[in-house]
Amino acid sequence: MIEPKIYFIPFSEIDLNDPFFDSLRKDYLDFEQWFTKKSKAPQEKAFVTYNQEKRIEGFMYLKREEMPVGDVEPPINFSGKLLKIGTFKVNGHGTKFAEQFIFIMFSQAIKNNYDKIYVTVYANKQEGLTKRLQLFGFTTYGEKNGETVLIKNLQYDNSQSHYFNYPLIQANRFFLLAIYPQWHTSLFPQSKLKTEKNHKHLDLTSSNSITKIYIAFYPYELKTGDAAIIYRTSEDNKSARYCSVVTSLCIVEEVKYKYDFKDVEALLEYCKGRSVFSDSDIHGFWKKNTLIIIKLLYITNFPKKPTRQNLLENNIINKEPIRCYPISKQHAMWILEQAELPTTHYIQN
């Protein structure tokens, strides 16, 4: 199975004649004119993904919007920075490419200190995309030429769900959560190590999804709302001190146990599209009574990945193997700083 990839490339390298753009031509009379103008500007780029036939499957264009935005009713005007999703379309074939684009969009917003994001959609034509955006905190703001205007406010709202607040999190408890190498990169493709050049995803759907399900067999203390820093263990025959690394930040959305499911079929349905484990794997897991099923929201990858040796040197962990290891908020913040992550942008007090 070919590893999915989203490219950030100039408009001039994108084929305007690809059938993918037919619906956009129909919905926007000036689409070709707009696209051609962007193609003549080398600095103008978009996020694009392709299928195995080299046809476009997804497209997203982002830009900073100057305020006030007067062609929206009511006009948008505030003192912060506004990110506009200029064009966003994803073909739907059962995968969750839309969430991969949403992940990139939020990463760009956080990296560049945006306060709000807005997009216009034909809600009746783009029902699936609209619902997914609403799940991740976009709310109806107004109207523009027959389209619905949705806005995402990048401020944490205690009255809302983890999905709604994504990618911002509030957490009182922090854990290192160990993931074995054979599962890690297929579950967290954005956190792939540079040494994994030959790795191929085991499952397209779970790789693209922001929601991840991991199954383990230990009495973990994890609860909904805990922050999980993903700890990728080392491969066999490699030094754990230097090959075990922390790679990613997640928040625990839900924790379930074997007794929460009436049978293995119910567990299979729960994991569908969210886990790297095969049906055969899960049937095997079902035989164990210590089953724990962890639903995570993947927040971000780490630009730099501190090693087990770094954690030992700073007394964050001891020499025992890590499965689900509680750490203080102070130590968690240290890890995120060493990972070169803008912690105050993701972690809300």
Rank of each mutant, 00 (worst) to 15 (best):
I2S: 14
K5A: 13
K5W: 12
F8G: 08
I9Y: 04
I9G: 00
I14H: 12
D15S: 11
D15M: 07
D18K: 03
D18W: 05
L29I: 08
F31E: 06
F31H: 06
E32A: 10
F35P: 00
F35L: 12
K38W: 09
K38N: 15
K40R: 15
Q43A: 15
F47M: 07
F47P: 03
T49P: 09
Q52S: 13
K54Y: 09
E57L: 11
M60T: 10
Y61Q: 12
L62R: 00
R64C: 08
V69M: 07
G70T: 12
V72F: 11
V72G: 01
N77I: 02
K81N: 14
K84R: 10
V90K: 01
V90T: 10
N91G: 09
E99A: 02
F106I: 06
A109S: 11
I110E: 03
D115Q: 09
V121C: 08
V121H: 02
T130D: 07
R132Y: 06
T140D: 15
Y141I: 02
G142M: 04
N145Q: 09
N145T: 09
G146V: 01
G146E: 04
N153Q: 10
Y156N: 08
Y156T: 07
D157Y: 14
H162A: 10
Y166H: 15
L168I: 06
L168Y: 07
L176V: 07
L177G: 03
A178K: 05
W183T: 04
W183A: 05
H184K: 05
L193N: 11
T195V: 12
E196Q: 13
H199Y: 13
T205Q: 14
S206E: 04
N208V: 02
I210E: 01
K212W: 04
I215Y: 05
I215V: 14
A216V: 09
Y220S: 10
E221W: 07
A227G: 06
I229W: 01
S234E: 15
N237L: 15
S244F: 03
C250V: 08
C250I: 02
E253A: 11
K256N: 08
K258R: 15
K258V: 11
A266V: 03
A266G: 05
A266C: 08
L268H: 10
C271Y: 03
K272G: 10
T290Y: 07
I293H: 01
L296R: 01
Y298R: 00
Y298E: 04
N301D: 11
P303C: 08
K305Q: 13
P306I: 00
L312N: 04
N315T: 01
P321E: 11
I322G: 07
Y325V: 07
K329Y: 07
M333A: 12
M333F: 14
I335L: 07
E340V: 12
Q348E: 10
Q348F: 09
